[in-house]
């Protein structure tokens, strides 16, 4: 299904951020992406805060997927 496809895509994108394969993304991981993405550290921090819904300082694959879903306009149910 489309949702399944999106979750797969989210997983791939998640792995681009989680280079050490920790299973979560920290703000530091995010800021490291400034070398690869055309975003400023402030923007990356903004993205992180936006995705970190429970404000625990870690982005889980689910939070990441939900962020991608919000971006694409699809609700991803847990």
């Amino acid at each position: 299904s489309f949702q399944q496809e999106m979750l797969e895509k989210a997983k791939e994108l998640f792995q681009l951020c989680d280079k050490e394969e920790k299973g979560f993304i920290t703000k530091r991981d995010m800021q490291r992406l400034q070398n690869e993405l055309p975003l400023t550290p402030e923007q990356l921090e903004d993205v992180f805060d936006n995705l970190d819904q429970d404000n625990n300082g870690y982005l889980t694959p689910l939070e990441f997927s939900m962020g991608l879903g919000k971006f694409i306009g699809v609700e991803v149910l847990s």
């Binding site: 895509k9 791939e12 681009l16 951020c17 055309p38 903004d46 993205v47 919000k70 971006f71």
Partner: peptide, 29 residues
């Protein structure tokens, strides 16, 4: 305005982020 403050356009930044990641994914296998 190039001096856009982070936080004012969260959704735009989010879109920019995901678009960049997506193009990175497809651009460099």
């Amino acid at each position: 305005d190039p001096n856009m403050k982070a936080g004012t356009t969260s959704e735009g930044v989010l879109a920019n982020f995901f678009n960049s990641l997506l193009s990175k994914k497809t651009g460099t296998p």
